[in-house]
Design a protein around this nucleic acid. Structure first.
Lengths: 354, 354
DNA sequence: CGAGTGTATCGAATCGATTCGATGCCCGGA
DNA sequence: TCCGGGCATCGAATCGATTCGATACACTCG
């Protein structure tokens, strides 16, 4: 095999020369911004393929236009962790749709703990960013991005003033499902919550701890429960997963004396775990214990049950975020959008045991 | 609030001027490529923060250096679909690690069906690409990327010559787990496979259909089974999911007469579905039916069972892909890497019923 | 025949940084 | 006092394309 001397890739200028036209003309042949006679276009295209030119260099084009066609999605920690939440994926799909009008792709950025100041956030060629979830660090990421002058949209997070956010009626939705359980006659209700802060500690949530909680979703959903059951105790899981729900469920159901008659979980995954814990204890759902979830994602693993839950419009949230980003890039004013969950009656809640 | 006249963002040149140094000096203050006296550095940094300069423009830097610091991951179809396979996420995590040395991020690119020629593949400012899975279309994506002169690595796919691939010992691994079942004494074995082609048709796999199959993973894993059980029938699922496994399981177990004593599923998700189907029929696993999976991902939903399966090193595969990409970008020669699955004995396989 | 209209193509400035060979300066040694 | 050697800084070319006002040409209409 002959050692090829890397022959500098052809540039637009080479193509133009080969075709006997100016660079400007060659450029528009590829971008289509202006009319070009068929004869000229063919000549340019022919020259291009003769030289193995595959189109304008994206980096050069980006520089000139001031757009890279990339939207960053900032996730915390490991990808695995972020995708553990099943709503993330549909949301990203919606987002991909939403930014499709920009011809943009989605850049996954881990909000790195490396505090060398120069995270990827500073150096990534992106047009805008979408922050998912909220945390203390998210806040500083946001500052970095804004100081770069990039449009930012926050999904389910505490954006500062002026940052459009895509939000959910967490509190109202939680209250709605709590009222559902209340109507069924339950008085002994416990909430199983998501993490309250980045320490992700398991266990009972004291008023003290609640006051220190930093995860809005958790606080809001719990607030909704408290709107209906002001004294409902709450126990926190470390993450949103079936296993964590199982752990929380075991803790709640261990003692037959103090056992609640209904559990309001802050995610479907947690709810499934609680149901599994109930099965372990020989409790029937919903006869002996009612369990409700939150999210409305497709969950496997509860047999013929349909989980009673609040369905959140995940794809729509993502799409909305994408659309707002697109607006901002067009120079229009973006708005914060508030989405509403829909109650889905399932077979996992019923009247309390007498 | 005063209407601000968007004040052109400060550039390196502005900062240099303000600090009274040359652009070159200002540049190295940010890139750190050269020694700069402390006094000068401080002056430049001060000027920068005075002007609100947050660092070199990524697009301009990309153009100049010829690197964007972005690696594309090409997925087929909807994100949802790609992430349905639970091994995808750990793999991407590994990939993120693997390319971290480049300071690179991961760009999710949907291999769009839009045949306008100018897919995002052509216009995205990426340094390299990783293709996941394989399909007819993957092949054409590959051509696009290679003609752009980008390094490409393929995971689990049919790369052309000269394209490094990250592969798995699918056939051997499938044979290994088949032998495990054989040693237990089973003679009546059926395989539940992944999709055979992009049409994703459910149902029995005839020799004819097998010959037309285009998904290598499916063909290889089935080949492994046939190495041990040359006559084992196979039934294909549409996708890798618990539900699909359930459907396939129902079809297989409906008739007590023709029911197999062991099912070899090509993914853990499918296996869980088959187990659920068995439970529906009142069959005990593994006493009445042995079920084995493939992948070794964490699956919830099978109670206290531990799935007998072949564990594939997903994170390592991703990381390896990232490392090969990094090598190619450094101008080194990249190698194809072959990974091996590890047998994990679980509680879902046992001796056949007598 | 000249003015007017429209269309296809061209020129040249510009996007913002990186890089490396060249330059100037300071200091020690003879 | 003169020279060589470091070290910090500077100049200028360069990366590759986009864009828009200007130009040139052909043609129609009065």
């Amino acid at each position: 095999m002959a050692a090829e001397i890397a022959p500098r890739r052809a540039t637009l200028s080479d193509v133009a020369q080969e075709a006997g036209v100016s660079m400007s003309t060659a450029s528009v042949v590829f971008s289509g911004k202006t009319k070009v006679s068929d004869a000229t276009r063919d000549r340019v295209l022919a020259a291009a393929s003769a030289l193995g030119y595959t189109g304008p260099d994206p980096m050069a084009a980006s520089l000139r236009r001031g757009r890279s066609g990339i939207v960053a999605v900032v996730l915390e920690g490991q990808l695995r962790e972020a995708f553990l939440d099943p709503v993330t994926i549909p949301m990203m799909d919606g987002l991909a749709d939403g930014v499709a009008s920009l011809g943009a792709g989605i850049l996954l950025l881990r909000d790195d703990p490396t505090e060398d100041g120069a995270s990827a956030l500073t150096t990534a060629p992106v047009d805008a960013a979408v922050l998912i979830g909220c945390s203390t660090r998210t806040r500083s990421s946001l500052d970095v991005l804004r100081s770069r002058g990039l449009p930012v949209v926050v999904i389910e997070g505490d954006a500062g003033e002026g940052v459009p956010r895509i939000s959910l009626d967490n509190r109202e939705a939680a209250a709605e499902i709590a009222r559902h359980v209340q109507r069924l006659g339950h008085t002994d209700v416990v909430a199983v919550t998501l993490a309250t802060d980045s320490r992700r500690e398991r266990g009972g949530i004291s008023p003290d701890r609640l006051a220190r909680a930093t995860v809005d979703v958790t606080v809001d959903r719990l607030g909704g429960v408290h709107d209906v059951y002001p004294d409902a105790p709450a126990i926190s899981a470390a993450t949103s997963s079936i296993d964590e729900g199982l752990i929380a469920g075991r803790a709640l159901l261990a003692d037959p004396e103090s056992r609640p008659t209904a559990v309001l979980a802050q995610s479907d995954l947690l709810a499934v775990g609680v149901i599994r814990a109930a099965e372990e204890q020989g409790l029937r759902v919903p006869q002996d214990l009612s369990v409700a979830g939150f999210d409305g994602v497709r969950v496997d693993g509860i047999g013929d049950h349909v989980l009673t839950t609040m369905v959140q419009p995940a794809v729509e949230k993502g799409r909305a975020a994408g659309e707002q980003v697109a607006r901002m890039l067009r120079g229009e004013r973006a708005a914060s959008l508030h989405f509403t969950c829909r109650f889905r009656a399932g077979s996992t809640t019923g009247a309390p045991p007498d």
